[in-house]
């Protein structure tokens, strides 16, 4: 397959796993935060919005370092999770997934928030007068109508995870087979003599996967829109 070496294949597989987990694990939080930002009226909303968007503005190295401080073996959250639930992030692929999830979170929330805001609140009111509890209104009206944006948010998060480099390498380093994702592998190849061919192959894969993700999101969004228009 494209003449990939075992090392390169490992990096591709790891990257896919990290990106899928990052997207899946952040999805519920993403929907919740998007809903809060779109429809909530509470003290500290601006603050929440700022915190969510922080990884977008901060240098990735800073985000990675903050993660290391918080989720490292001796960090307050990391120590707690390791003791209570035996979940370890530091220098594991799970840490890479966490770093990717955090970096992709603003993109995910932004797309979902916009699509939830676009749902006609008068429809939600109507559902309420028909006896639906607000939670049901969200599940049966808001969520289905916001599906195109939710898909878009997931794809963006996935694509971001496939390409995340700075925060990942700072937080979980660059261990082949454990935390060496596609970008890290490319970086490693460019640092050693004769690594050009490998770097190029992985770069091509990176481009193909990202383009594929965008195409799929485009198709799914269009299908969802067509379904709404037809009904």
């Amino acid at each position: 397959m494209l003449g990939l070496t075992e090392e390169e294949l490992t990096a591709v597989r790891l990257s896919l796993r990290v990106a899928l987990w990052a997207t899946a694990a952040s999805l519920p939080f993403g929907v919740l935060v998007a809903l809060l930002l779109a429809r909530g009226r509470f003290w500290g909303k601006t603050l929440l919005n700022g915190v969510v968007h922080l990884p977008l503005i901060l240098p990735p190295v800073v985000t990675g370092y903050v993660l290391l401080l918080l989720f490292g073996r001796k960090g307050p959250i990391g120590a707690f999770l390791a003791e209570q639930f035996d979940i370890v992030f530091a220098f594991r692929w799970t840490g890479a997934a966490l770093a990717c999830a955090v970096m992709g979170f603003p993109l995910m929330v932004r797309a979902m928030r916009l699509s939830i805001e676009a749902v006609d609140q008068r429809l939600e009111q109507a559902a309420g007068t028909l006896g639906a509890h607000p939670a049901w209104v969200f599940l049966t009206i808001t969520l289905p109508l916001a599906v195109p944006g939710i898909i878009a948010g997931m794809i963006l998060s996935f694509a971001k995870a496939m390409g995340e480099f700075g925060a990942t390498i700072t937080f979980v380093s660059n261990i082949p087979g454990e935390t060496q994702t596609l970008p890290s592998a490319i970086y490693t190849f460019t640092q050693v003599p004769g690594g050009d061919a490998g770097a190029l192959r992985l770069t091509l894969i990176s481009v193909v996967v990202s383009m594929g993700a965008l195409l799929v999101s485009e198709l799914m969004a269009r299908q969802a829109e067509r379904r709404l228009a037809a009904t």
């Binding site: 006609d120 008068r122 429809l123 009111q125 109507a126 559902a127 007068t129 028909l130 006896g131 639906a132 509890h133 049901w136 049966t140 009206i141 289905p144 109508l145 379904r227 709404l228 009904t231």
Partner: peptide, 26 residues
């Protein structure tokens, strides 16, 4: 209290049947 709005406000992602039955779940 049933409410018939001026603009109908039917749920665009549900068929007429499922629009009609929506309040019945509750």
């Amino acid at each position: 209290v049933g409410y018939v709005f001026q603009e109908g406000r039917l749920f665009p992602h549900l068929s007429v049947r499922r629009n009609l039955l929506y309040g019945r779940w509750f």
